[in-house]
């Protein structure tokens, strides 16, 4: 990165991972590092700053994506992807620097924990990953109509996609919706599409991200079939009235939950530590 020039500009991109990779491509060709990077919708115009809006180009982003995978390492790709999903404000600049060094130094970049932006990328990744893992347990589906299941979540990080993919593997024969209420995004999975192996949903944005996870799991099926899911805006979603059957299962779960705790060992503090209040709204039992 030593011969790169730092320009006093703000780079803007569309907020997607592909958009960000296009931005990385741009920085690489010109060997420039911006002052700041923002998703367009989050940027408030400031007349002291010069901005450059970088267009999303799927070919370029694919080249960067493959380049990271082939020339640095899978881990670097994985770290960048999850760090990108994190909610940290300066994530883009840190990932950019991490990738710059990565292309220069190769896979050993991941062991350079004492370099601030490497450390930052790794801790962002860790946060996003562990929230994703936690939500794999905390998601509560309810059947809102025949074989359609719905769950709302309030995550800090934008982990709806890897989360949804987890459930596709787990309950492939249920249609489901996961609703990220903090971002108003809905992950929709249609099981009949998955079964018939065709992909009417051309959600370009999702394909690459999907691949990042699929590579990781050594799973090529997604690449071949295309995703049977899409991520859409969820502002208009209205929860239908629940059936009696659904209410009964909720009750059974609540009763089980309350019964299984040992009174003599009561420890609300410990409970809260593992299950912070911010998740309680979506839990049936709390």
């Amino acid at each position: 990165m030593s011969n790169w020039k730092l320009v006093n500009k703000v780079f803007l991109y569309d907020g997607t991972f592909e958009g960000f990779l296009s931005l990385v491509f741009y920085c690489f060709t010109l060997k420039t590092l911006p002052q700041k990077i923002y998703p367009i919708e989050k940027y408030y115009t400031n007349f002291l700053e010069t901005t450059i809006a970088i267009e999303t180009d799927y070919n370029k982003s694919k080249r960067v994506f493959d380049g990271i995978y082939n020339n640095i390492s899978f881990d670097t790709l994985y770290n960048s992807f999850y760090a990108f999903l994190s909610d940290q404000k300066d994530k883009e600049l840190n990932i950019l620097k991490y990738l710059c060094d990565g292309f220069e130094l190769g896979p050993k970049i991941n062991s350079m924990l004492t370099v601030p932006y490497v450390f930052s990328v790794l801790s962002m990744k860790k946060r996003a990953c562990s929230e994703c893992h936690k939500l794999k347990g905390l998601v509560r589906f309810m059947e809102i109509s025949n074989n359609i299941y719905y769950s709302s979540i309030h995550p800090d990080n934008n982990i709806i996609e890897p989360l949804g993919q987890h459930f596709i593997k787990r309950i492939p024969n249920q249609n489901f919706i996961i609703h990220d209420k903090n971002r108003n995004l809905c992950f929709l999975y249609n099981c009949s599409i998955n079964q018939n192996n065709h992909s009417p949903y051309q959600n370009n944005g999702a394909v690459y991200q999907n691949n990042a996870v699929a590579y990781r799991n050594n799973d090529t099926s997604y690449q071949n079939n295309g995703p049977a899911y899409q991520i859409i805006d969820g502002s208009n979603f209205k929860l239908p009235k629940l059936s009696d059957k659904e209410k009964y299962y909720k009750l059974l779960w609540k009763v089980f939950f309350e019964t299984i705790a040992i009174k003599e060992r009561k420890n609300p503090r410990c409970q809260m530590q593992f299950m912070p209040k911010k998740y309680w709204d979506d839990l049936i039992e709390m």
Partner: peptide, 17 residues
């Protein structure tokens, strides 16, 4: 239906933590 996760997944925490 279902699969197992090698590191396990917690689904909730009881009042005893």
């Amino acid at each position: 239906i279902g699969n197992a996760n090698n590191s396990g997944i917690c689904h909730t925490w009881g009042a005893d933590g």
